[in-house]
Each structure stands twice: as C-alpha cells, then as structure tokens.
Design a protein around this nucleic acid. Sequence first.
DNA 1: ATTGGTGCAAAACCTTTGCAGGGCA
DNA 2: TGCCCTGCAAAGGTTTTGCACCAAT
Lengths: 152, 152
Amino acid sequence: MEARIEKIKQQLQAQAFKLTPQREATVRVLLENEEDHLSAEEVFMLVKDKFPEIGLATVYRTLELLSELHVLEKMNFGDGVARYDLRNDSTHHHHHHLICVQCGSVDEILEDWLAPLEERLDREFQFTVVDHRLDFQGICHRCREKAKAKAK
Amino acid sequence: MEARIEKIKQQLQAQAFKLTPQREATVRVLLENEEDHLSAEEVFMLVKDKFPEIGLATVYRTLELLSELHVLEKMNFGDGVARYDLRNDSTHHHHHHLICVQCGSVDEILEDWLAPLEERLDREFQFTVVDHRLDFQGICHRCREKAKAKAK
DNA sequence: ATTGGTGCAAAACCTTTGCAGGGCA
DNA sequence: TGCCCTGCAAAGGTTTTGCACCAAT
C-alpha cells in the first residue's frame, strides 16, 4: 500500500506534479476500493469521510490528472457516469470486465486474451492496435449459484 | 431499405408502438448512415433536413425506444455523447469496433471473434455470457498508409 | 373518451472552468 | 514573488421530464 503510494508519488513528481494531501487522500480511496470501479461522485464521498473540506472539482481534477499519467483508466460502462480503474502497471493493457446484468458486479480478468486477435487485425485489416477494451455482460458465478439453489 | 423499415415497423407493432412519421424519418436517417455511429444530436440535425418541425426530445425518445427493442445499440466511445449502432438481426451480438486514435474513424468487424473466449469464461469462470463488447483503439489502415507515404 | 405520441421549455445531471485565495519554494 | 493547487460557484453540454396539445383509435 505505502509502496504503491510512493510509486504514484514518483510518477507525479516525474512530471513536476505534487502529491498534495487531497491527491493522496484520493489515491488512498482508490487503492482501498480497487475492485470497485468507483465513479467520481463515489470517490468524492469516500474522500470526504477522511478529508471533509475537499471539493468535488479537486477530485475531478485529480482523477483527470491520474488518468493522463496512466495511473488509472477512465471507463464508461454506459450508466451515465465515468468510472475509474487503477492500472496495474505490470500490464499496460486494460483488464477485461465481466459485468453481471443481475447484480451489477464487475469482475476482472487480468490476463490478456486478445493477443492472437491483435495479430490477426494487423495482418488482415492493416490496423495497428494500441489499446483495447473487452467487456462481457452476463450472469456472474454468484448469481448463477443463487439461481441454482433456488431451482431446487 | 423498404424491407428493413417494414421489419422495424413490425417490431414496433409487436409491442403496440406505432411507426409515426417522426420515427420513420429517424429510422431512415439511421439506415442511410449505418456506418457512422451517429450521436443523438447528429441524428436530430439530419432528420431536421427532411422533417424540420421535429423536436430533439422526440429523437431521444425514439432512440431510447429502439434501443429497448434491440433495434439499435446505445454505445459510448468515451467522447461524452451516446452513439447509436443499428443492429443486424442476423447477429444478436455487437460488432467489434476499430477506433482510430488519429482520425477518429470507427470501422466494424461483423464476424464474432469471441465465441472461443465465451466458452472459456463459462468453463473457467462460471460466467454465462449474454452479450459482449470489443473495441480496439489504434491506427486505421488509411492513416497507416498516409504515414507510410509521408515517410518516403 | 382514452391512449400514445409530439414539441417546447424547463429541469436534471455530470463534468469542466473561472477566479480569488492559499501554501510552498 | 511566482507558481501550482485548492474550494466555491457558475457555466457547459448532454439527456430527461413536465405539460399542454394533437391524432388516431
């Protein structure tokens, strides 16, 4: 945790940005809720618990900044708000997402399943891939279990 | 063209909705610009050329309705507006998109490249896929050609 | 008469921006 | 002092909603 904050601090400083208290509080919230794909508003409310005087605009500016530095990814799942996904710098590509249409949960696949397809795009479509996005909508394993239990 | 309108008319009537002149004009614009992933505003302006008294709210309502009937797909490419993609009912899955980061064009792949991955999700993740979304960002073949020509 | 559909304007919503002030080099 | 950063409020842009009216059953 502290190591990851330190790393982000360095990424900021490398471009002459500071890790202010507000920015650090925001990053901590993101780290503590890494699985959750929070919206700006949700981040704002969580940060406010620890740092009540922060303004919403600051959260937006921080998210925007971290997004530009590729510390996190701005995503859009079609529910009208932007959501943010911390990047594992081990992989420079997006995670794949498993979005449950029943309970709304979003799970992730961290491996890259698309390398063969990207080669094919290059060969057959003369398209040079720099990034990708792969989301599946469906029924997650938890809801599937629940449905099975109920059916008995 | 007329056949496709007729089909959409039937899809509407099956749920007791009418193909009003405004809706028909909207559908025609979508059919005529099928490749273009228009935004609501763009559809509105194109419809207005033929049907000047139409209101923007009607276009939004029509797009929403057609979206619910799965006649078209509401997409979000991250540019702040919803874009609409007419569905080929031959495939009940989305197209895959090739989004050019240089010129902003969006090309489509009509085949489904994900069937093997969906089987794997079912086996390994106990996740039942009902739909998916696959977008690639990169350099399209046109921009790649241009860059090559310039490099000479 | 009832129902669904429309146009207009207002509202709602998320996000960005302008600006005056604050903190730190 | 100069510069980045902040909070607040206002503005911006997209989408939805309320309402009165219209058309067709």
